[in-house]
Amino acid sequence: MSSYSGLSGECVMMKGDKGDMIEAYYAKPSGKGPFPGVVLIHHAPGWDEWVLEATRKLAQHGFATIAPHLYHREGTGAPEDIAAKARADGGVPDPQVVEDIAGAMAYLRAQPEANGKVGLIGFCSGGRHVYLAAARLSNVDAVVDCWGGNKFFDNKNDPTKRPVPPIELTDKITAPVLGIYGNDDKNPSPEHVNKTEEILKKAGKTYEFHRYDGAGHGFFNVPKSAYRPEQAEDAWKKIFAFYKKYLAK
């Protein structure tokens, strides 16, 4: 037996909001399974190379993982150019993102290697998206928020695209929540993180938060100056342990 198990990764088409077919990257461990599933939601800069690497990392650790391209409808071209267009348009609407996540969860559960359990993970704006989806969708088994900001006030900027601040929906979350944050981050700031924890606690939710000194926003992103190797390694271990606890069957 080799030290590492194999995996496969490929671009697929999946059904998203309103039945739209959108592209996604699907990576799964080798073998018949059954494997727990994870939906990975990319950061605001888009469906980039690091997002695909993170998808494969989860597959390497035993999770069949799908990363939908939330900006697919914005047009064709290099993902960073499509992300720039989406950004200039004010981002994608929350209701559309939630239904794209629902579609990705359905895709995972329909695979022959699925064990039926599905977790969510999101980075940056994706952290905000999965917190929102965990409140809006009933069949989420675990959710990981990596430095998702703008949970409290984003609706004031664009009530059409972001009608409700996710924090106001906290009471509807049924899945356990894992939060990963850098103490040098400005959004979410340590005050935002403390407030989020306070609201989860008051609502009686199952959660665990991990805060890292010496780390700011996006500290997993290897090619970027924000990368913090020691903190990132510890946080990834926390994520794998959390999913093994809640996505096993």
Binding site: H43, A44, P45, R87, A88, G90, G91, C124, S125, R128, W147, G148, G149, N150, N157, D158, D185, K186, N187, P188, H217
Partner: peptide, 8 residues
């Protein structure tokens, strides 16, 4: 956190 604040 990335913002959507854009000057056009």
């Amino acid at each position: 956190m990335c913002t959507y604040i854009t000057e056009k």
